[in-house]
């Protein structure tokens, strides 16, 4: 049996440098990640925090920081108890320049079997990464409707995770 993981690939018309900034600069993430601001000094082992409207939504620490190529951090969902009780998982971004575009592969893995977080991120990443691609290519992230959909997806994930636990 293969290990539980989520993998998503997208292609973005940009440079690895610009995409790297989009992944590591809080002012940038806030624009496409529906208000989520990433913060870290990005040294090996340093804490990483994800805040939304000031509140901590997720946390982790830096595993790999190889500029313009690989970024990896542990990921512990903090915003709700049903997810908080799970141990941290791992997020890895791989950037491959391909001439005029960059192939971005996001792998979210290192889950325990039956992880509720894994179920939830399967809905979340495509929305976040689509918004990132839109922001870089057009100057505008996916609109407020995207934020509402992200919020609904979060609520649904919580409800689902609770239902499964009951």
């Amino acid at each position: 049996m293969s290990e539980p993981k989520f993998v998503y690939v997208t292609y973005i018309a940009t440079t690895p440098e610009r995409l790297w900034q989009a992944l590591t600069d809080g002012a940038f993430t806030e624009r496409y990640w529906f208000g989520t601001r990433v913060e870290s000094d990005w040294t090996p082992g340093a804490p990483v925090s994800f805040r939304r409207n000031g509140a901590l939504s997720d946390s982790g620490h830096v595993l790999k920081y190889e500029p313009f190529r690989v970024l990896s951090y542990t990921f512990h969902v903090e915003f709700h108890e049903v997810f908080r009780r799970e141990r941290p998982s791992r997020v890895t971004f791989e950037l491959e320049p391909m001439g005029n575009e960059v192939k971005l592969t996001v792998t979210h893995d290192d889950f325990d079997p039956g992880s509720k977080v894994l179920e939830a991120v399967g809905n979340g990443w495509p929305l976040v990464l689509a918004s990132l691609k839109s922001l870089i290519e057009t100057g505008s992230p996916l609109a407020a409707a995207g934020a509402q959909a992200a919020e609904r997806a979060k609520e649904k994930a919580v409800a689902q995770a609770r239902g499964d636990a009951a």
Partner: peptide, 22 residues
């Protein structure tokens, strides 16, 4: 599929596909 549909998104949002360079 990720390439095709990423490029479709670019065509609809920017008018330009993802350029095939490989």
């Amino acid at each position: 599929w990720p390439f095709i549909l990423s490029s479709l998104k670019s065509v609809l949002e920017t008018g330009k596909p993802i350029a095939i360079s490989v």
